[in-house]
Design a protein around this nucleic acid. Sequence first.
DNA 1: TAGATTGTTAATCGATTAACAATC
DNA 2: TAGATTGTTAATCGATTAACAATC
Lengths: 205, 205
Amino acid sequence: MQNQERISRLLTYKNVLVQFQNIGLIKVFSDNIGDALNISASLVRKDFGFFGITGSQKGGYDIDSILTRIDAILGKDNIQNVIIIGIGRLGSALLHHHDVFSGEGVNICAGFDTDPEKLNSESAIPVFPVNQLSDYVEENKIKFAIVTVPESAARHIIDVLKAEHIKGILNFTSLKAKNTETTLIHNVNIEHELTRLVYTANRQD
Amino acid sequence: MQNQERISRLLTYKNVLVQFQNIGLIKVFSDNIGDALNISASLVRKDFGFFGITGSQKGGYDIDSILTRIDAILGKDNIQNVIIIGIGRLGSALLHHHDVFSGEGVNICAGFDTDPEKLNSESAIPVFPVNQLSDYVEENKIKFAIVTVPESAARHIIDVLKAEHIKGILNFTSLKAKNTETTLIHNVNIEHELTRLVYTANRQD
DNA sequence: TAGATTGTTAATCGATTAACAATC
DNA sequence: TAGATTGTTAATCGATTAACAATC
C-alpha cells in the first residue's frame, strides 16, 4: 500500500496551485508551495519526483502543467459512480454536495435508505430501498460507496458491500471496518476528529 | 506536537473495548486488541505504556480500568463548549448530532449563519447571525469551533476565530488553514477523502 | 559568468516491530 | 514449575529533511 500522506498532499498541491493560478501566477518554485502549505521545499520536490512532475532549474514549475499532470494521475476524466447508503442528515448533505464531487471525477448516482419517506426513484439522484442495494450494485457495476447509516446498521451494510466485492468504501460510521482482499475501506470518524482536536489543543500549555 | 496517530488509536481502543465489554468480556490481552484493530500487539502495549495504562502478566488488561483511564486522559468530564459556524446541510447535520458528541464531553452550544432563515435564538441550540460571532466567543469564553461555511466565507471566518485566539478549529472547508501560536486547526476534507479512496483502490491492480 | 533552483543522494528522525527478560 | 503475557529495549523500517552536484 502506498503512502496515504503523499496522496493527501497531492490533493492539497492541487488546491493551492489553483489559488496561485487565480491570482495570476504562471510559475512557482518548490519553496513557494512549501511556504503555502507549511511543509519543506524538499518534500515538495520529492513528491513531484515521485509523481513524475518535472520543472526546470530556471523557472521552477509551470502551474498549468502540474495541474494537468495531477488530474491525469487522479484519473479525473475516468468518471466513477458512487452510491450513498443512509440518507440521514449527513448522507443527505453529501448527496446534495454532488456538484462539488462531480468536478473531481466522482458521480453520486444513487442513494439508499430503509425509511419509505426518504425514497424517491424519480429525482435527479434517486433514493432506493436498501433491499435493492445488492441488485443495484451488480447491475450498475458500482465500485464505490459512502456509508452514512446509523451505527446499528453499519456492520450489515458493510458486509453486504464486501460480499459484492465493491472496490472502496468511505465509512462514516463509528464501526472501525477492516479491508478485505477486494474491498478497501477508509474510515472517517468526525466525532474522533473533534475529540482529538480538543485533546491536542488542551495539552498545548 | 504529539503523535496524532497515537491519539487516534486511543479513540479506537475505546470503541473496541466497549464492544468487548458489550459481549461480556472482562479482561483482554494486547493480542486481542491488536487483532480487532489490525495492528500489532507490540504497538498496543507501546501505546498503553505511553498513556500509563498497565496490565498484569497473568490476566492481561482489565477492560473497565482501561476505559476509565482513557476517559481520564481525554478529560471527558471537563465539558467543552463548541460552536458551529455555517448551518448549511453539513453544519446542520453536526448540530443535530449533539447528543453523540455530548457523550464525549463535547457540548454544541450555538450555531452561526448569515441566512436569516437559519437564525433561531429560541431553540435548544440557538443559531445567531455571524456578526455576533466575536462577541459570543468572548462573552462565553468559547475555546472550540467547527467551521462548515462555503469556501468563499472560509478565510474570513477563520481569521475572526484566530483573532479571538480560539484554541481549536475543526475546519471542513477546502481552505487548508494553518495553525497560529494560539489556534490549532485540524482540516477535514471529505472531498479529498473520497478522491483518495478512489485513487488508492483503483491502483490496487 | 554568477546566482538560483531542480533532482537526487545521504543523513536524520521518529514510529513500528521484533525480541526478550521479568514476572505472574 | 511450565507457560504465557506484560513492559521495555534493541532493531527495523520508512518518511522527511539536509545537502549538494547538475544545470539553466
